[in-house]
Design a protein around this nucleic acid. Structure first.
Lengths: 191, 191
DNA sequence: TTTACAGGTGAACGGATGTTCACTATACTA
DNA sequence: TAGTATAGTGAACATCCGTTCACCTGTAAA
């Protein structure tokens, strides 16, 4: 309800259909009868920063609408309604995914990375084909099984360390098969 | 390169511009010279499940392209290339955000929730205006400051428990101000 | 009371859109 | 060698698009 009149209709359409409604479709959504009325609204929404026109003159939802408000820290809490407009916005996909073609989601089984704050049932985003650096968390193939471990490379020696004292560090004898590098961890509540 | 010829050109366009190219724009991208050639490709891509036609006959990227492949568990690892097509796909935004209007991102400061696997620098997705249930993690306003705590309500008595033995449980004397409920935690590596 | 303005109507426009038809060139197969 | 898919050309089509112009109506300020 914080959006101008009719703009929520546009947002609903975008969420359901995945693209912006045409002026004629907006007529149906709003109950108005002249495309000129829509044109005037679109113009005012561009001035308000809700819409943009790209280089080809086509309308786009601006990122302040598609993204999530990125506020400060937990301690800072929520800004007062007056200053709420200062917030930056951020799309989760853009934020978390760099190489979409190579990124996959895996569900975490086991507790070998618990001390790294990665728990059973968490979801990890992994990127294939990347060369791991010392300290990265990776998915490796060990003895025809898969595990998530810290990757360490010190003085040319490679080791796979779990983040759980119950398990032991692995020193690969043969060539280490790195399947993917973990780029993010996601935990969802209220399933 | 796993996509059919010309389809990657389409994907690049979508990522840069946010909408599907028209047939004429595809001509420019592919170097072809007849919109009919594009039409035939689009048709084959629909049959391949890469594109869809919605109820209005407009082309859409199908979710198998927009989303991320959701594989099994870490232990299961990556399927062999032969069976890779069985994977389900998932959009991060759809997966994590239910009420977009009320969802915000906050950066975690402090270590009061460390035993819940929420660490300094993590990002939490929070939803405002939701009534917390027993066991939820919430953002609360306490003495004109903000904290993240477990919300407990047992026998009608409310308490705020940290997930860190260093801190003490809070029993609110006056009315508890619940700013938001934490719906997801995100940790990003390779900043 | 007059003026100005925001919001809406209705019609017309040139251009862009997806579709369709007939045709051509290349490559593979029987 | 003839036959047949496969991939692309070129042009025409009806339809839909965003824009624009003149005009109407209520409201609020001068």
């Amino acid at each position: 309800m914080t959006y101008p009149k009719y703009f929520s209709d546009l947002l609903n359409f975008v969420r359901k259909r995945g693209y912006l409604p045409s002026f004629r479709e907006m007529l149906r959504l709003t109950g108005l009868k002249s495309t000129n009325a829509i044109a005037k609204h679109f113009q005012s929404w561009v001035e308000a920063g809700l819409l943009e026109k790209d280089s080809q003159g086509k309308y786009l939802l601006s990122s302040s609408v598609t993204g999530l408000p990125l506020l400060g820290t937990v301690e800072a809490g929520f800004p007062s309604p007056a200053e709420e407009e200062l917030a930056d916005t951020m799309s989760l996909d853009e934020f978390l995914i760099h190489n979409k073609e190579a990124t996959y989601m895996l569900t975490v089984s086991g507790d070998s990375m618990i001390d790294a704050g990665i728990r059973l049932g968490d979801i990890v985003l992994v990127e294939r084909g990347r060369t791991p650096k010392d300290g990265d968390i990776i998915i490796a193939e060990i003895d025809s099984g898969w595990t998530m471990k810290y990757f360490h490379k010190r003085n040319g020696k490679v080791s796979l360390e779990p983040a759980n004292k119950k398990y032991r560090t692995i020193y690969p004898k043969e060539e280490l098969k790195v399947a993917a590098v973990v780029t993010a961890v996601i935990r969802k509540y209220h399933a």
